[in-house]
Design a protein around this nucleic acid. Structure first.
Lengths: 301, 301
DNA sequence: TCATATCTCTGACTCTAGTCAGAGAATCCG
DNA sequence: CGGATTCTCTGACTAGAGTCAGAGATATGA
């Protein structure tokens, strides 16, 4: 008797929960590690954020999700300790610009160092081989968790996020194709095709960075086409491609298509493998895209 | 050029930090998920712990790492809400036994459900195969992290902790030896041998549970012997045995021994393998222990 | 049996974290 | 220009989390 998917999910959820409990209990102190520095957590988080990227108080409030009064008090504390400077923004004198002082930068490095030591302390009792195993397991978990928490969002293909993702896609094609890749002129018509009502463009982001993208357009009655599908190199092997593909197929269905087609280049072996795994079968050339060598289709019904 | 151990440690520490940051950012809310239940975190954690396994307040304090005064107050709150009962322990009337009421159990199940949903939400976007990979990675990380954070403590062999660990050890021997195992009468002399100044007994605990133990005694001039070394079944494969063995060798060194011996039974194959990996070589029988079949020694100089 | 240790509980604290309601300065817009 | 809006800051709160020093009851060991 094999386990059903639901039972598997149960079992896996248990493992996740067990891990969460034991890990946060042991390492949760890692967040409070800032406490070890003599600074309260809130202050330390703020200092850390200012160090990562200085900005206006408004900006910091948004990044940390703090109340303006609370932030003001935290800043005053850091200022009194000589760790940050809070100055008027010349562009808008209602605003304040926050930056680290030299002492603040040292303190920030101190926090970094402490964080590092915590990680080392955790590893210290283990043998070299076990450290390797732990690092590998955490890296694997990290990749998968990041992949699971990627957000898929339908955006305008002309938006900043979409253009950033497509730019990376084209850059990769240019690197990988033997003769390079020339995207040609991105016409307004291209963007139009990938916009409602006849198309859509989806960008997957993690921590605000685009990590995958893909578009759908209509190329005939009941026939959709998947275009510009790309997954960031660091993210391959986490199933992000399959997930995005499934998502795009769903978009096609919503557009009322019964069939979806796509073209690709033989160089992109992992993409071809993924399409085949996802149930696509190879078909004859259906367009004159000079970079396309292989053509696939899948029925959505 | 191969990486030196220090470089490896750096790299591994980076992986740990990267994981910590991304995981707590995404899942950290999991701890606060209890907040979603309208209960303060501390109270919810306590209720959760009582539900997981009722026990004495002393027990709960150890498990949650709380101050006795604080715990007392939290319990009073839960009691006032009718979620737990706090009664005298008939075995020791200084102690209190805490248990859930019916209302408490319902509340506990609510917390469980919430916690479960969080875990499922994390897994939901992944494919079945990826879920398996994530669960495997987290389970591996969990085992190693638990092993790394085990505390080794030298205790009196007559102490409760030591007796609990040895009890489990003997129970396992009884299960594994074909003819069973009779520990005989644990004489006061036995405990004496494993106590200062001529010996020591070490218990490894995790979450207050004994997970491994081992003793050292003096059996001749400059000759120490390792006795009653045991690692909990769930903990094998995490290097805990090797770590304990190294620790006990250190104890031997502190006692001024140049050689350490030990005996074991052929049934305990993983133990024999570990001794050999740790540099022990097999020697002739040096005692008349009826359960011992194989004898090992290692020079500490 | 009596000193000592153990255990829970109470009172009196401290510190963080965070909310809310304005005050006052600067900016924007018609 | 003048009212509305935006922005930071202050004061006055609340609640959670946790520490510390005993008091008082109970158990343990010489």
């Amino acid at each position: 008797m094999t386990a059903t998917p639901v039972q598997e999910l149960d079992a896996h959820a248990c493992v996740v929960r067990r891990f969460n409990r034991s890990y946060t209990q042991r390492i949760g102190a890692l967040d409070d590690s800032f406490l070890g520095s003599g600074m309260p957590l809130g202050t330390a988080r703020l200092l850390f954020e200012v160090g990562a990227e200085p900005g206006t108080t408004r900006d910091l409030r948004a990044r940390l999700g703090l109340d303006s009064g609370y932030l003001s008090r935290l800043l005053r504390r850091l200022e009194a300790d000589g760790l940050v400077t809070v100055a008027e923004d010349p562009a808008d004198r209602r605003r304040r610009v926050v930056a680290l002082t030299d002492a603040g930068r040292m303190r920030w490095q101190d926090l970094e160092r402490r964080s590092d030591e915590r990680a080392r302390d955790l590893l210290a009792p283990l043998t070299e081989r076990q450290r390797g195993r732990l690092a590998a397991a955490l890296a694997e978990a990290d990749l998968l968790v990041r992949a699971a928490t990627v957000t898929l969002e339908t955006v305008d293909p002309r938006s900043r996020a979409a253009r950033a993702a497509v730019g990376k896609y084209f850059a990769e094609l240019d690197r990988r194709f033997p003769g390079g890749f020339d995207s040609g002129v991105q016409s307004a018509a291209d963007a139009e095709m990938l916009s409602p009502p006849s198309g859509a463009f989806v960008v997957a982001t993690s921590d605000g960075e685009p990590v995958a993208c893909g578009g759908v357009q209509t190329i005939g009655d009941g026939v959709g086409e998947i275009k510009r599908m790309w997954v960031h190199g660091d993210w391959r092997g986490a199933g992000l491609g399959s997930r995005l593909l499934r998502h795009l197929e769903g978009v096609c269905r919503e557009l009322g298509h019964a069939v979806v087609r796509l073209d690709t280049n033989g160089t992109l072996t992992e993409a071809v493998a993924m399409y085949e795994r996802a149930g696509y079968r190879e078909i004859e050339r259906y367009n004159d895209n000079p970079y396309a060598e292989r053509f696939f289709a899948k029925s959505l019904t």
